[in-house]
Amino acid sequence: MKSAVDRWLGPSLTVLALVWLWLVYAYIPGARFEGEPGPRAFPVLLGVVLAGLGVVMSLQALMSVGRERSADATPVLTGREAWLAIGTFGLLILYAFLLDKIGFIVATPVVIATAMYGLAQVRRWVLIGSLAIGITLGCWVIFDALLGTPLPSGSWVVWP
């Protein structure tokens, strides 16, 4: 039942847990008053549990060497998947950046168009254009016009 992934996932989780524990001890102060858990106890507990679970997973994977099913031989991530994941991530980061700098009204259509073209591989310009404008307008009406909650206006933009 154990997959090939576990053989490296288990140890990496343990390493992650150890890094976590190091950070926790370095940066979170202990209890201020005697007898109470304080802000550090819970994070430490979590680190220890995760480290333990990582070890158990590694052991299970070791014991089942040579018994993998063929299904487990497929790679965890194909190149295409990795690219699309990175692309989506990059686009969201870009969106956050643009919202901050040039504001909702400009950033949203740009990001929608980019996503449609680059990620969804749509080449119908009418669809791209109408969606970009439609969603931007719709959101603006709901948030700004109807409810008066301000959407980001962009720090690079100086409104007249």
Binding site: L92, D100, T108, I112, A115, L131, I135, T149, L151
Partner: peptide, 23 residues
């Protein structure tokens, strides 16, 4: 689905912003 995906992506961006008005 891929068109819906784009819409969801943008809505998630706006949604996350509006919760605490935080980029």
């Amino acid at each position: 689905p891929h068109v819906l995906g784009v819409c969801i992506l943008v809505l998630c961006g706006i949604g996350s912003y509006v919760i605490r008005n935080s980029i």
